[in-house]
């Protein structure tokens, strides 16, 4: 059952000094998970950024539903060594609801982030974007640096709990895309 239209992308070309990615066409409705697939260098992450204004748009259009709230999970993360921030602090920043976190992480929210493993930290960071109040969630390589338990929990959660949102994700992990996405859009090189 399709929800209301959140995003309509038509002929989108995006880049930095000049266009490096696109054209891209797709629509996204609430409850859908659209995966952007394509070879390395096709500009999938650039196009994802263009959806919220993170890079220059050189052509086409991105039409967003009025009042659309966007949450974007970017690749990479600051070095958190020595930073006195707990898991509760991190989720509180984006307003993310901790309900639904895997048990192996939910019990450690009171600890400093630099006491968590790389996989736990990546999952928490992902969760801070995924569970933030937003209509549209943009995930850039969400499985990077996750361990198998993390990927499994993410796939399970996306499969059953994201109904109120629309999600666009980029991943090199074809099996993950096939497992969680309701639709896949190919991005040309």
């Amino acid at each position: 059952m399709a929800g209301d239209l959140l995003l309509r992308v038509a002929g989108l070309r995006a880049g930095y000094a000049g266009p490096v990615a696109g054209p891209l066409d797709f629509e996204l409705r609430r409850g859908e998970i659209v995966g952007l697939a394509g070879p390395n260098g096709a500009g999938k992450s650039t196009l994802l950024k263009a959806l919220w204004g993170g890079v220059r748009v050189f052509g086409g259009e991105v039409h967003k539903a009025p009042g659309l709230q966007i949450s974007h999970q970017a690749q990479g993360f600051d070095d958190l060594r020595g930073v006195p921030l707990s898991g509760h602090d991190l989720l509180g920043l984006t307003g993310a609801d901790p309900a639904g976190l895997p048990p192996w992480l939910a019990g450690r929210l009171g600890e400093r982030l630099d006491r968590l493993s790389g996989g736990q930290l990546q999952f928490l960071r992902l969760w801070a974007c995924l569970a933030a109040p937003a209509d549209l969630v943009l995930l850039d390589e969400p499985t990077n640096n996750l361990d198998r338990a993390g990927v499994a929990h993410l796939a399970d959660w996306l499969g059953r709990a994201h109904g109120g949102q629309g999600i666009v994700l980029v991943s090199h992990d074809h099996a993950f895309i096939d497992q969680v996405c309701t639709r896949v859009v190919e991005v040309g090189a």
Binding site: W52, G53, G54, Q69, I70, S71, H72, A74, F77, D78, L85, D89, L90, G92, L93, T94, A128, C129, L138
Partner: peptide
Amino acid sequence: SRPLLLARFFPEFYRARG
């Protein structure tokens, strides 16, 4: 406090929300 922390850990947070 929150905007300053967000600017460090989620630098795109506000811009993604316009």
